[in-house]
Design a binder for these strands. Structure first.
Lengths: 325, 325
DNA sequence: TTGTACGCGTTATCAG
DNA sequence: CTGATAACGCGTACAA
């Protein structure tokens, strides 16, 4: 691979001049530019980003840690993050923590060693301290860590209220909620709280179920649903903590011969594209996934540039009624 | 951030020694190791991977270019690739080409500039020459470029035969296939060919439809299905080129009041996890997605180490019957 | 306006 | 067995 030296030699100038042309620094005669550019072209030269990064101590890489890219919500989120990062000249280093403490820790280490300019955390298995200690631009999704670390989330509580209210307005009397693990002060727990609050306000009996370890284990979803229909066979309104869970709920109903929405109404959360492909278009609380992804990237970039950022960014949700309610 | 110099100073040795400890080169007294390690620990030192990469001219980064991570098949594939790369000490730079020629080209440039050790290409919008020219370990999915560039694919033709035969054995008489764009000598076109061949062998009328530009535009899928049911209202067997297309086909049938599998039978291709969440568990031709991802990574690594690789790696498919046939 | 020389953090090649 | 020192490729004060 040709280096800046080769280009300088071929163009008959010094490396400094080539570097200047490359970075558009100072005044350069058109003539000179042409000469240098043509030399670069002839050699098919590309500046070595590793050397650049080392020299500027800035890698233009953003690290992204999420539980699973194969999870539709994170897949869509990742897609938008990548797109927006790319538009801003950043590359994306992808890490799937699989909700594994050890892996997440190793990934953080790896990203720091790679001198990424910032990390977007969509996975949170570690204690607050672990995140506070690393001295790096950070953004989290749905997790409050410290006032210095901004988080992006949808209006979880309002989403929970909207979903639950919808079920109630439709006449559901025996409600249930299935959500993720309510530990590690993940803000998505607000969805569950809103559910419980709203049900209570209407004096309606309600059941709360959640996975053990927030592992996105689909088997766990099926077990929870089995448990639900076993303990509460007369449930008539389910608010699922994610569209994926809702999809399993819908499937579970159909397998048990329960009609949706006549016997059981279901509403999900996320607004993933695949919601329209289920047996019935899913009613859901739509998060602005694209906007959230863009915002996360912007917040990293702002911090990189030394700009100040707020502590929280709560984006609005939208109730989108499909055919399951 | 502390450097190797700081560690050397703190441990009272030279940078060379620290580097040796870091890389386990030569003989080192236990005493010395302890001293150096504790210094590293005290300073929370992490070697700068950028500097390492520059020095060794090896970045331990693999670039992955795919159309969309949000597409479930690529999401799963990416997940396995990342996992396997990680296990082998490689990082993954994610690029979504969105099937855009310009973007794909820019990404290739960016990856070369970043001195990635190799590129896994799941997107193919460019001409053969573009790929041949870059002097880098490469692996493609489903695309034959040149004898030097290995490709990984499932047994597309056999998959197509299995799917079509299944439909025929079930008694379907008017077959249709919806696939991706049959250009750019993508090997997945073999699925379509196998469909046509098999139908012809059985003297069955059959229709072939495909998207215009291989853009994974879901709107295009819906339009194609509308066209299909418009032109061939009596179709009773659909072989979809992907599970996603099959999902749309299933949806289209239901919207038109056609019963599956009684009126129309559907079989997909890929074997994505989400196939079980549809109105009916989808019958499909399962690709060994995990194995394909692992193999792609291995092939990059082998090339990095200067090892020889074969030109083609065709992995077996498996018919998995759900409830749509 | 252009070029020389040093620094970015590591690894590797030499001597000692 | 350990320690200077020169690369790795580029950016940039500083000097010319």
């Amino acid at each position: 691979m040709p280096t800046i030296k080769d280009v300088a030699l071929k163009a008959g100038v010094s490396v400094t001049t080539v570097s200047r042309v490359l970075n558009n620094r100072g005044y350069l005669s058109e003539d000179l530019k042409k000469k240098v550019y043509s030399a670069m072209n002839d050699l098919n030269y590309r500046p070595n980003e590793l050397a650049r990064s080392l020299s500027r101590s800035k890698s233009n890489i953003i690290g992204l840690i999420i539980p699973h890219v194969s999870h539709p919500f994170f897949g869509e989120l990742t897609s938008h993050i990548e797109e927006h990062a790319y538009r801003n000249g950043y590359k994306l280093l992808l890490c799937n923590s699989q909700q594994d403490k050890h892996k997440e820790l190793e990934y953080i280490d790896m990203l720091r060693a790679s001198r990424v300019d910032g990390i977007i955390m969509g996975s949170h298995t570690l204690e607050v301290e672990a995140y506070r200690q690393m001295n790096l631009p950070l953004v989290t999704f749905d997790r409050r860590i410290s006032p210095e670390i901004p988080y992006v989330c949808s209006d979880n509580y309002r989403g929970g209220v909207l979903a639950t209210t919808l079920l109630i307005n439709k006449g559901c009397l025996r409600l249930a909620h299935i959500g993720g693990h309510p530990e590690l002060n993940i803000l998505s727990v607000l969805r569950s709280e809103a559910f419980a609050d709203t049900a209570r306000q209407h004096n309606l009996p309600h059941t709360l179920l959640h996975t053990d370890n927030n592992s996105f284990d689909v088997g766990a979803y099926e077990r929870l649903l089995a448990q639900l229909f076993n303990e509460q066979p007369d449930v008539d309104g389910i608010f699922a903590g994610s569209d994926l869970i809702a999809a399993y709920a819908l499937k579970a109903c159909r397998e048990r011969g329960l009609r949706v929405p006549e016997d059981v109404r279901i509403v999900g959360y996320d607004g993933i594209a695949l919601r329209s492909l289920l047996a019935l278009p899913l009613s859901t609380i739509r998060q602005p996934i694209e906007e959230m992804g863009k915002l996360a990237v912007d917040l990293i970039i702002q911090q990189v540039h030394g700009g100040a950022v707020h502590a929280e960014y709560i984006l609005p949700v939208e109730l989108e009624e499909g055919a399951t309610t």
